[in-house]
Each structure stands twice: as structure tokens, then as C-alpha cells.
């Protein structure tokens, strides 16, 4: 449960002109919030570590060394090693990379493309188009997210796996395709459920803009619907939509971890916090080797907490305007 506020009373989108001024103003206000800045630093550190994982990780995430299994922190392995002697720091960095790839991909496809597109169309066209899109959204949002995702993923991921194995036999390019395949089922399933919120939000923004003079002027000049949507409406809401979305990145990341924990998300050997947490979660395991759970647990908790704080601050700033 993040912020529960009706989208309509947040602000007037007219003020959200995508001019430099709005961005600068927003940044200035956000910078005054210390907690938000600290959260931003945490997010940048973790995701930055993920992006740079191939460069800065001391070991490969698959490199095993049974002789050194289940060690605590040491000079060679700053965060210890897991059951197979794999370096926990390297695995955490690569897991951050997985989380980053999945959550950004879901936001771009599910929220920005599907959600934004459908929201624009629904808000601008109105009538039966609006009705249909919103009813479909209603059906999706009345579904229990996690159980449905588990079902979709349980069905999808082995198919994708088969495809990945087939692709791996192809000459060249196998590695890239395989990497893509290991993310794709979770990413497809998440996109399916994360568009509704954005669509509703964008629609409410468009409803406020639709009757304004510059849109009427464009219509009077005979601009086509796609042109009005892309050239006139989109630039006016883009900034605010991106802001709103950045606040929801945390819930996507959390869902990815949860699904992988359940065994239906990112498939091994691709590392993920979910799988690492699952490996360390028995009571006896925790008693003997607490670092197995604490290392990925701390990464995930601080990431999600930072997102929650940042999301609250962003919402505050949007609302204050």
C-alpha cells in the first residue's frame, strides 16, 4: 500500500508543461528533502552496482569453489560465500542487475507503452473506447496480483526455457538470447498487470487537458488523432507520468523478488535476490549462516525502503504545486 490518493485532485496538468522550468522547479523542491536525497543515493548505489556488475564484481556469479563454501565475510569474499562457494558480493551485484533490468523493462513496456497508450486513447476518445479500456482494466485490477502472476509465470517460464535452450544451440548469439529469455517470462507477466494504474492516471490527466484551447486549436486545424495524442497531449503529461512511475518502481522490484522466491520468476543460473533469500531462509540455515539471508535481505529492504521514501517525497512535491 503506497499512497492512496484520488489521482484527480493531485494537481493541474497544465502546470506540468514539459518545459525546463517544471523539471528544474521539481528538482529544486525535491533536493530540499533530505530523506528523499538519501533514498536517491541508496537507489543509485544499488542500481549503479547492478549496471557495473560485470566490471566491479570480484568474481563471476557462477564461479563455484566448494572448498570455500558457506564462509562468513573475509578479505577474499567481503560478504562471504554461499552453499556452493560462490561469492555473495558478486551474486548480489548481479541480482541488482536482474532487478534493474526487470523493473525498468516492465515500466517501459507495461506502464509507458501499454498503460500510457491506452490511457491516452481512453481519455481522448471517450465513449465506448474509453468504456471498454476501463472495463478491461477493472477486470485486471480486480484480480489477485500475486496468485495470477504465479499461475502465468508457472505456465510461461518452462516454455521460455525450452526456447532458450533451443536458442542456445544456435551458432553465435546464444548467450544474448538466453539472457533475454530468462527475464522475459517474468517481464511479460508483470507488464500484463502493471499497466492498469498508469492507464487510469494518464486518462485522468488527459480528461483535464482535452477541452483546453490548444487541443481545440489543433483539432480545428485538422490535426489527426495520433498527432494530437503524440505531439500535443503527450509532451504535456510526460514529465508528471514519469515521476509518478518512478514512485512505483519499488513495487515492481518487490514483486520480481517475491516471484523468484516462489520459484516462478527469474530462472537459475541467472542470479536474483529472490532465489538468494529463499536459499538462506530456513531457521537452521539462518542460525548457522545468517549472512545467506541477511546480505540479500538488506539489499532488498534498503532498496524497497528507499523507493517508498522517494515515492512519498515525489508525491508530496507533485501535490504541493
Amino acid at each position: 500500500m503506497t499512497t492512496v490518493a484520488p489521482a484527480s485532485d493531485l494537481h493541474s496538468p497544465a502546470a506540468a508543461a514539459a518545459s525546463r522550468g517544471a523539471v528544474a522547479l521539481f528538482w529544486e523542491r525535491l533536493r530540499k528533502k533530505k530523506l528523499a536525497m538519501m533514498s536517491l543515493v541508496v537507489i543509485v548505489l544499488i542500481y549503479g552496482g547492478g549496471i557495473l556488475a560485470p566490471v566491479i564484481a570480484p568474481y563471476s556469479y557462477t564461479q563455484q569453489n566448494i572448498d570455500q563454501a558457506l564462509q562468513g565475510p573475509s578479505r577474499a569474499h567481503p560478504l562471504g560465500t554461499d552453499r556452493l562457494g560462490r561469492d555473495m558480493l558478486s551474486r548480489s551485484l548481479y541480482s541488482a542487475r536482474t532487478t534493474l533490468v526487470v523493473s525498468v523493462a516492465v515500466l517501459v513496456s507495461g506502464s509507458l507503452l501499454i498503460g500510457n497508450g491506452l490511457g491516452l486513447i481512453a481519455g481522448y476518445r471517450g465513449g465506448w473506447v474509453d468504456n471498454m479500456i476501463m472495463r478491461v482494466g477493472e477486470i485486471f485490477s480486480s484480480l489477485p496480483g500475486l496468485p495470477m502472476l504465479i499461475l502465468v509465470n508457472a505456465a510461461l517460464s518452462p516454455r521460455v526455457d525450452e526456447f532458450a535452450k533451443w536458442a542456445a544451440r544456435l551458432p553465435g548469439g546464444g548467450g544474448v538470447v538466453h539472457d533475454f529469455a530468462s527475464y522475459s517470462s517474468i517481464f511479460a507477466a508483470l507488464s500484463l498487470f502493471f499497466w492498469v494504474g498508469t492507464a487510469r492516471y494518464v486518462r485522468s490527466l488527459v480528461l483535464q487537458l482535452r477541452e483546453r484551447d490548444f487541443i481545440l486549436a489543433a483539432q480545428a486545424l485538422g490535426a489527426s488523432t495520433p498527432r494530437i495524442l503524440v505531439r500535443h497531449l503527450l509532451p504535456n503529461i510526460a514529465f508528471i507520468v514519469v515521476l509518478q512511475l518512478s514512485a512505483t518502481l519499488g513495487s515492481v522490484a518487490g514483486t520480481e523478488v517475491a516471484l523468484t522466491w516462489f520459484g516462478v520468476g527469474v530462472q537459475p543460473p541467472t542470479p536474483s535476490f529472490g532465489a538468494m533469500i529463499y536459499d538462506g531462509s530456513g531457521t537452521r540455515t539462518f542460525q548457522a549462516y545468517p549472512h545467506l539471508l541477511l546480505v540479500p535481505g538488506l539489499f532488498v529492504s534498503s532498496l524497497l525502503f528507499a523507493f517508498a521514501l522517494l515515492g512519498d517525497a515525489v508525491n508530496d512535491v507533485i501535490r504541493d504545486r
Partner: peptide, 25 residues
């Protein structure tokens, strides 16, 4: 408010094993 925000940010699957170990074991 910030305590509650912190508590709700930690996923169940992270916090459960430590509490379980602390209180039960």
C-alpha cells in the same frame, strides 16, 4: 510514520526467518 513506512518496506520473506529464529529458536 517513518517507523511504519520502514516496517512496511521490508518484505515478509526477508523479515520472517530472523523473527522466527529469534522468538522460537
Amino acid at each position: 510514520i517513518s517507523t511504519l513506512l520502514f516496517l512496511s518496506a521490508i518484505p515478509v520473506l526477508v523479515i520472517l526467518p530472523p523473527i522466527q529464529w529469534l522468538l522460537a529458536v
